[in-house]
Amino acid sequence: MAVCEINGRRVDFTALGVEGEMPLLWALRDELDLKGTKYGCGIAQCGACTVHVDGEAVRSCAFPVAACGGKKIVTIEGLATSVNGAASKLTRIQAAWVKHQVPQCGYCQSGMIMAAEKLLRDKPKPTDADIDAAMSNICRCSTYVRVRAAIHDVAKSA
């Protein structure tokens, strides 16, 4: 049934008593206590809940547990380890986020970082148009100017 790997750990949602219709977001937050993935809208509009499922950026508020079977899932908590191995130092994107002082309230930033990671894997040198297309996350504080600058900075040093 819904056995998957989350941040390198085997998770059996059926054994945990999690129903298949539950969105992955709420299984992460309220069943596995992985609170870094955020709830913002519940209808895949804002991107605060973005995680990686088999390398794809997925809005976990609209991705049911039933669809997780056999998948490798990475959340913000596991991102550094998945990229850098056991040392789990900050990823280059997280480091660029600190360098450019991107977050304000920070609530959307887990999702932003997960989306940016996916973008840069696909397109190591993204254009502004690539960024506009891939980064559809909502940030109410408006960190957009710095998100763009940080992504370009990472691309430059790649």
Binding site: N7, R9, E31, D33, G78
Partner: peptide
């Protein structure tokens, strides 16, 4: 189920967040 829940939570704290938190 409660037991699973607790174990899972501890596992996850040991894996990701707690390790990277030391960087700050």
């Amino acid at each position: 189920m409660m037991k699973h829940h607790t174990l899972s939570r501890r596992e996850f704290l040991q894996s990701g967040a707690a390790a990277t938190a030391g960087l700050a």
